[in-house]
Write a protein that binds this DNA or RNA. Structure first.
Lengths: 215, 215
DNA sequence: TCGGCTATTGATCGAATGATCAATATGCGG
DNA sequence: CCGCATATTGATCATTCGATCAATAGCCGA
C-alpha cells in the first residue's frame, strides 16, 4: 500500500503552467470529447491538483470554449495550408474535399458536434462555435472567389455557396462519426455535387487521381 | 410558507403511467434537448416523484435512447407523409428539400445533434442513432429509386446518393441550429446541387414555385 | 364492503461535479 | 544565503446526478 509517490511540488511560471493546462485540456478533448473536460480530469492530465486548474481558469465553461476554439482553429490552419499546396486555384476546392473525406479527423469532428450540442448550455462555447464557423466560411469564400476570378467557377453568391459547401462538409463529417466510412465512391459523387454548386466542370475542381478502387 | 399542496397520490395503470412518463420525456427533450432528460426533471414534468420514473425505466440511458427514437421516428413519419402529398414522384425530392429548409424543426435538429454528441457515452443511444439514420436512408433510397424508375433521375448508386443527400440535409439543419437562417436563396442552390446529385434537371425535381423573393 | 395486490411515495446513498480557501513550500531577488 | 511573494496544495462545501428501498395508500375484485 505504498502511497503514490507524491511528486515533489514544482513551481512554474504562471504562463508555463497555464500552457500546460490548456494543452492538457486540448489533448483530453481530442481523445474523449469536450464533455470530458472536467476540472478533475484536466487536472489529472496536467499532473496537478484540481484547485490549481480552477485557479488558472475563469470557469470550466470558458475553458471548454477556449479549448474548442484552439482545436478548431488549428484544424482550419492545417487544412488551409494543405489546400494551398495545390497550385491550381480552382482545384483547391477538390483538395479541400479530399482532405475532408480522407482526413481521419474524427476527433475534431466530435469536438464540432459537441460544440453544437453543448452550445445551448454554454454561451461562451456557442459564441466560439459561431466564430469558428465564420472563420471556415471566410476561407471557403476565398477559395471560391479565387476560382471565380480564374474563370473556373460561375457563382452568383459566393457567400451563400460557401455556407452550403460548409454545411455539406459538416454533414459528411458528422455521418462519418457515426457510420463506418462505407461509401467507396464518396469522392466522385461529392466532387460532382460541388462542381454543380460552383458552376464548374468536375474535372476542373480536382486532380484526376481517382480514389483507390476496391475490387 | 404553505407547503406546496401535495397532490393526492393517484394510482394509474402501469401502461398509462409509462405513457405519461414517456410523453413527459419527449416534451422535455424537444424543449430543452436530450441533456435535460434527468430523472428528476422528467419526474417533475410528469408530476411524479423521481423514484417512480426510475421504477418504470431500465435506466436513464435507455430512456434517453428511447426518447430519441420516438422523436425522430415521428419526424420521419411526418416528413414521409408530407413528401407523399406530392403526386409527381420525381418532385418528391424537391418537397423533401423544402420541408427540410423551411420546416422549423430546430427542436428535432437539436435532438439529432445531441444524439451524435452523446453517442460515445451512451451505447443504447448510439444504436438508436444508427437505426434512425438507417430509417431515413431507406426512405430517401425509395424516393430516389422511384425517380429513377420514372426516368427522371440518372443515378449509379442510389444507396450512396441517398447517404450523400442525407448528410447534406443534416449539415444544413445543424447549421440552421447555430446560424440564423440567413441565406435567402438556399432553396434554389440546394435544388441545383441535389439535381446534380441525381442526374436530373433542376426543374424536374421541384415545383417551380420560387421562394418568396425579398426585394 | 373490505382485503390485498401493487403503484406510489419519501427518504437516503454514493458518486461526481464546480468552486473556494487557508496553509504550505518553492524558487527568485536582494 | 535568506526572506518573501505567490504558485501550489489539500481539504471541504454545496449541488446534482442516478439509483435503491422500506413504508404507504389507492384501487380492483371478491
Amino acid at each position: 500500500m505504498t502511497s503514490t509517490p507524491t511528486a515533489p511540488r514544482t513551481r512554474k511560471s504562471p504562463a508555463e503552467r497555464r500552457d500546460e493546462i490548456e494543452r492538457a485540456a486540448r489533448e483530453l478533448a481530442l481523445e474523449q470529447g469536450l464533455a470530458a473536460l472536467t476540472l478533475r480530469a484536466v487536472a489529472a492530465r496536467a499532473g496537478v491538483v484540481p484547485g490549481l486548474v480552477a485557479h488558472y481558469v475563469t470557469g470550466m465553461d470558458d475553458l471548454v470554449a477556449a479549448t474548442f476554439s484552439a482545436i478548431v482553429a488549428d484544424e482550419l490552419a492545417e487544412v488551409h495550408a494543405l489546400v494551398r499546396r495545390e497550385p491550381a486555384v480552382a482545384r483547391r476546392i477538390g483538395a479541400l474535399v479530399d482532405t475532408v473525406l480522407h482526413g481521419g479527423r474524427d476527433d475534431v469532428t466530435l469536438v464540432w458536434v459537441q460544440g453544437w450540442a453543448l452550445g445551448p448550455a454554454n454561451a461562451a462555447l456557442a459564441a466560439a462555435v459561431r466564430e469558428q464557423m465564420d472563420a471556415w466560411h471566410t476561407m471557403i469564400v476565398e477559395l471560391i472567389s479565387d476560382g471565380v476570378d480564374a474563370g473556373a467557377f460561375v457563382v452568383d453568391d459566393a457567400h451563400a455557396a460557401a455556407w452550403h459547401l460548409l454545411a455539406m462538409i459538416d454533414g459528411l463529417n458528422a455521418h462519418s462519426l457515426v457510420r463506418w466510412h462505407d461509401a467507396p465512391d464518396r469522392r466522385d459523387m461529392t466532387l460532382r455535387v460541388v462542381a454543380a454548386l460552383l458552376g464548374a466542370e468536375t474535372a476542373a475542381i480536382a486532380s484526376p487521381i481517382t480514389t483507390e478502387e476496391t475490387a
